[in-house]
Write a protein that binds this DNA or RNA. Structure first.
Lengths: 147, 147
DNA sequence: AGGTAGTTGACTGAACCGGTCATCTCGCTT
DNA sequence: AAGCGAGATGACCGGTTCAGTCAACTACCT
C-alpha cells in the first residue's frame, strides 16, 4: 500500500506550481527541482508525464518553464494520484470483477470496494489551491532557515 | 497504491479459516489452497508468516492443519493487512517525519496523514467473523457450480 | 516405525522503481 | 540567421520486491 515517489513528487511539484501561479509566474524545471529537492533529470521525466496527461503546460526556449494547465482549485490530489499511479484502486477486481472468477462470491472484494471509496473521498477533498494556501501558512509558521 | 497479493491471499485464507472455525474444524494447507485457488507452496510460505505473527496456529502430523489463533471477531482486516504489508501507511513520513526534512513545512504530508486515517478506519470496520458470515450469505446467493 | 503434514530456506524470473545520461528539438533573443 | 536557453525523448542501469517453485528437513499422530 505504498505510494510511489512518482506520485509524491508529482504532488509536491504541482503545489510549487500552484504557489507560483498565484503570483502569475511559471517556474523552470530546475527551480521546481531545487525547491522540492528532486533530481532535475527525474523531475523532467515526471513533468513530461504530467504534460501528456494535461496537468501542466510547458514552454521551451529562453524564459520558458512549466505551469499548471488548469486552475489549481479544479485539480484534486485524487486527480494527480489517479494519473500518476494509473489508478486509485488497490485491488484489481474492484474495477474489473472479471479478472477473478470468485469475485461474485468474495467477501473481501466488498472490503476493497469500500477501501477504494474511502481513498477517493479523502483525496478528492484536497485541491492544489487548498494545498498552496496551506503551504504558505506552514512556511509562515515554521520558516525554512538557510544555513 | 496496489495491495500485494500477499495481503489479499492472507485475508482470503483467514476468511476460510474463520468459516471452518465456526464448525470447529481446522483446515489443511492444501484444503485452504484449493478452496482459495492459491498455489499450495506459496500459501505455505504465507501461513508461516501468519504463524510468526500470531494470527494462526498450526499442528503437524496426521490430522494436523491450520486454525485461527484468535477469535475471528477480534481480528480485523486492518490487523491482517498491517501485518502482511508491514504497515498501513502509504507514505513513510506519516509515521516518521524525521525521514524528510521538509515534513514540518509540507502541505502534502497532512493529506497523507488523513489518507492513512481513512484507510485505517475503513479496514478496522471489518472483522474476520463479519467476513465469514458475509461469505456464507454470498455463497447462498451465488452458489459455486462445479463443472 | 511409518507416513502425514507443516517448516525452512534457497532459488528464480519478471516487473517496477528511482535515477542518470546523452542526444535531440524547439523557439526566444539579438 | 545564429546561438543559446530550456524542455523532450529514450536508452540504460542497479536495486528491490513479488509471486511462485522446489527440495530437504522436522515434528507428530497412530
Amino acid at each position: 500500500m505504498r505510494l510511489s515517489t512518482r506520485s509524491r513528487y508529482a504532488c509536491r511539484a504541482l503545489v510549487s506550481l500552484a504557489r507560483a501561479g498565484a503570483r502569475r509566474r511559471q517556474l523552470q524545471l530546475k527551480e521546481v527541482a531545487s525547491e522540492q529537492g528532486i533530481s532535475p533529470d527525474y523531475l523532467a521525466q515526471l513533468v513530461g508525464l504530467l504534460r501528456s496527461g494535461g496537468l501542466v503546460t510547458t514552454h521551451r526556449g529562453t524564459g520558458g518553464g512549466v505551469a499548471l494547465a488548469r486552475p489549481p482549485s479544479e485539480v484534486t490530489v485524487a486527480d494527480v494520484v489517479r494519473f500518476t499511479e494509473g489508478s486509485l484502486v488497490p485491488v484489481e477486481c474492484v474495477d474489473r470483477p472479471e479478472v477473478c472468477s470468485r469475485a461474485p462470491r468474495c467477501a473481501m472484494r466488498e472490503v476493497w470496494v469500500q477501501l477504494t471509496k474511502a481513498v477517493e473521498r479523502t483525496l478528492e477533498r484536497y485541491t492544489l489551491a487548498d494545498l498552496a494556501r496551506r503551504e504558505q501558512e506552514l512556511l509562515a509558521e515554521a520558516p525554512m532557515y538557510y544555513i
